[in-house]
Amino acid sequence: MSSHQPSAINHQPSAGPVVAVLYGPGINCQEETAFAVEHAGLQAKVVNFHDVNEGRENLTDYQALIVPGGFSWGDHFGSGRIFGLHLVARVTDQLQELVSTGKPILGICNGFQILVETGLLPDGTVGKRLGALLQNKSARFESRWVDLVVTDTKSIWTKGLEGRVLRMPVAHGEGRLYWEDKSLIRPCLCYAKDGQPTEEYPLNPAGAPGGYAGIRDKTGLIFGLMPHPERASLDWHGSSDGMELFNNLARYLKG
């Protein structure tokens, strides 16, 4: 029907703060993550780790860092292991500067796993691993839609969302958060059943203890989550709840 005007969203990449969306071999969600950032009214730049490594790019030139999902280096020896190792071995100073200058950092799925491998999560200790994301209890990759309840709003990413239930997809094989020191774990987002955190499978596809799907560091600037907010950023995805996180970033960066 040629007379019909298709639905379209108002999507105008704007001037202002620029967010680095980090690409490395095997990362595969950089495009849609960059789109969600732009959809929130920010600028996004996909930064290739190769260029960071060769000194052509510097992560501290950006106002925020997002490590998107994928299978960096094939997730060999542990999800996020080798990318984490590269980041710590080669750009520790840049990571530390991001932390010390209070720039927001987000890790989504593999990005979350990578942040944990660098030590940025749970506690901002670059080079010291204090947590891990272990294989799902089902020992399977789980691709599903889940409900997530916001249990903590002391992060810039979840500010103002207290008690909200957000709907997003998950897609991962290793999403079961593991820690030795519970005092370092600050859950913000939990797999939910009837609005309450749950360990019930498959509502909690990873079998994550406490239903923990996303955690923050003590400053609330660094945040990691297993679900994919960028895949729930438009109405026709079935949910645009994921935009809440990106909109929060935009509010924070634009003051």
Partner: peptide, 14 residues
């Protein structure tokens, strides 16, 4: 079986 395959990656799935 089907839920073991990512069906939402790329953010294009309707």
């Amino acid at each position: 079986a089907g839920t073991q395959f990512d069906s939402t990656v790329q953010g294009r799935t309707v």
